[in-house]
Computed example of a mutant assay.
Amino acid sequence: MAAVRDFHADKMASHFISRIGRGMTRLGDARLRPLGFATAQLPVLIALKDGAKWSQRELARWAKVEQPTMAQLLSRMERDGLIRREPDPADGRSSLISLTGEAHARLPAARDILVQGNRDMMRGLSAMEEATLLTLLERVMANVEGLEA
């Protein structure tokens, strides 16, 4: 019984990482909404920002989400005029996804919003503290990805 009483989930790193992630998603969504973007779309926007054309399977693998999740996301993005699909010449059953001109036009403003969000999140940290935090988070992320493999 003592072990349960001594367990304080709110003092664990995972608690803070999870809460920070959810909070940044809420803030990012609110800030990106006027541009017609959402934080869930960021992996697709980043992957295709330089004019690349990827399959749904490639995007799902890169974003580390399941195929049905990516399919729903891409359907919403297509509905909103952010992506277009064209037949994949190498695979007639598949299509290649790319960003529309409208999505490309909005990307610089979205990038500025994300950069400002990062500044806001790091407010009060010295340059050395921020560098240390990033190094530690990279190591934690590598640990998590190693556990997933």
Score class of each variant (00 low, 15 high):
Leu125Gln: 10
Gly101Phe: 07
Lys64Ile: 08
Asp120Val: 06
Ala127Val: 14
Ala47Ser: 14
Asn118Ile: 13
Thr132Lys: 04
Leu27Pro: 00
Ser75Ala: 12
Gly124Tyr: 06
Ala63Trp: 00
Ala9Tyr: 12
Ala3Ser: 08
Arg139Ala: 13
Ser126His: 12
Val115Trp: 01
Pro34Trp: 04
Pro89Gly: 13
Ala90Gly: 11
Pro87Met: 05
Gly117Cys: 12
Ala47Glu: 13
Ala13Trp: 07
His104Gly: 03
Ala3Trp: 02
Met141Val: 15
Leu74Lys: 01
Arg33Gly: 09
Trp54Asn: 06
Ala109Gly: 14
Thr25Cys: 11
Leu74Tyr: 01
Val115Leu: 10
Glu86Ile: 06
Leu45Met: 13
Arg119Ile: 05
Gly92Phe: 02
Ala30Trp: 04
Ser94Asn: 13
Asp120Thr: 08
His104Ala: 10
Met122Asn: 05
Asp29Ile: 09
Glu66Arg: 11
Leu32Arg: 00
Leu125Ala: 09
Leu114His: 07
Arg61Phe: 03
Leu59Arg: 00
Leu137Val: 12
Ala63Asp: 00
Leu48Tyr: 02
Ala52Met: 12
His8Phe: 10
Val4Cys: 09
Leu96His: 05
Ser98Ile: 02
Thr39Ser: 12
Asp80Pro: 08
Lys49Phe: 03
Arg76Asp: 10
Gly51Asn: 05
Gly146Tyr: 12
Gly81His: 01
Ala127Trp: 06
Thr39Ala: 14
Gly101Trp: 08
Gln41Tyr: 04
Leu133Thr: 12
Met24Thr: 07
Gln116Ala: 15
Met70Phe: 02
Glu102His: 00
Ile83Trp: 00
Ala52Gly: 12
Phe7Ile: 07
Asp6Tyr: 10
Leu137Asn: 08
Leu125Cys: 14
Arg139Tyr: 04
Arg123Gln: 07
His104Tyr: 06
Arg61Met: 04
Ala103Val: 02
Leu133Arg: 13
Ala103Ser: 06
Gly92Asp: 11
Ala60Ile: 07
Gly117Ile: 11
Ile83Pro: 00
Phe7Arg: 06
Gly21Asp: 06
Ala9Leu: 15
Glu130Ala: 12
Arg61Thr: 11
Leu45Phe: 03
Asp10Cys: 02
Gly101Glu: 15
Ser55Ala: 06
Gly23Lys: 04
Arg57Leu: 01
Ala71His: 07
Ala38Trp: 01
Met122Asp: 04
Leu82Lys: 03
Asp88Val: 14
Phe37Val: 03
Ala2Gln: 08
Val4Ser: 10
Ala40His: 00
Ser126Thr: 15
Lys53Gly: 08
Glu58Gln: 13
Met141Gln: 14
Asp6His: 14
Gly92His: 05
Leu133Ala: 10
Gly51Tyr: 03
Met24Asp: 03
Val4His: 07
Gly92Thr: 09
Leu32Ala: 01
Glu145Ala: 13
Glu129Lys: 14
Lys64Leu: 13
